[in-house]
Simulated scan of single mutants.
Amino acid sequence: MILSVHVVIPARDEQELLSRCLLAVRQAIAHATAVRPGLICRATVVLDSCLDDSALVVAQGGARALVVQHGLVGAARDSGARVALAEDAAAGVPASRTWLASTDADTVVPPHWISGQLALAENYDAVIGTVQPLGLTDPQLLAQWHLRHQLREGHPHVHGANLGVRGSTYLQIGGFRPVSSDEDVDLVRRIRARTDRWVATDTVRADTSARMQGRLRGGFSDYLTTLRGTVTEEAG
């Protein structure tokens, strides 16, 4: 049984959206600890090269801040995970009983996000969740997004904004690599190469900001921008 959960959230100048994310994470932690008394849950925001007031938002949001200067989302996620695992190891919690839940600073997770992942963790070592765009008001763009995304069990998608992995599995595959994008796809590829104890599920779906200008190249916002261009071309 999982004894400890660490929610790891990379952030780079996210003061505008971070408070919404942290509120949702707090609600998910409260739900999980109510369902599983004795469960230890913590949230760590990895502040990577931030120049805004994200640190203040973290302090007000009841999370822990880890300040780094990587400039790489993969390295930021890994730093948060490594600190969490080291903390649990020092407390005598084996990595096999630590769960690492990954989301993003512009994402809103559902209240059952952690408890849902832990229910699946009874049989799996990794949970690959879905996301849907939050605040996307263009009906044509939204329709095209849904045509390209399968919000179902066994879906083919990978999102760093909605992932969970057992600590021991994370260590065995080497964790997130220090890359600027697709660190989530790379991690899941290595998990799948090592074990069949993973599940792609829509049961813990999260909402990710539909902004068109994100904080990294190749991320969700870049995908939406490219999709908008495709829709415009098709309409023309």
Rank of each mutant, 00 (worst) to 15 (best):
M1P: 14
H6E: 10
P10E: 01
D13S: 02
R20C: 05
L22N: 06
L22W: 04
V25A: 04
I29M: 09
G38E: 09
I40K: 13
R42W: 06
A43L: 13
V46Q: 10
L47A: 12
S49F: 04
S54H: 02
S54R: 00
Q60H: 11
G61C: 11
A65C: 10
L72M: 01
V73C: 01
A75R: 00
S79A: 14
R82F: 14
R82A: 15
V83E: 14
A84P: 05
A84R: 02
A84L: 02
A86E: 13
D88S: 14
A91N: 15
G92H: 14
L100Q: 01
L100F: 01
A105S: 15
T107E: 12
P111F: 04
H112E: 08
L118W: 05
L120K: 02
Y124A: 01
V127S: 06
I128Q: 03
V131P: 07
Q132S: 13
D138Q: 02
L141R: 00
L141A: 00
A143D: 08
R148Q: 12
Q150K: 13
L151V: 12
R152Q: 11
H159W: 06
N162A: 09
T169Q: 09
Q172K: 07
Q172E: 07
P178H: 02
D184Q: 07
R197M: 10
A200G: 14
A206S: 12
D207Y: 12
L216C: 13
F220L: 04
T226L: 06
R228N: 13
E234M: 06
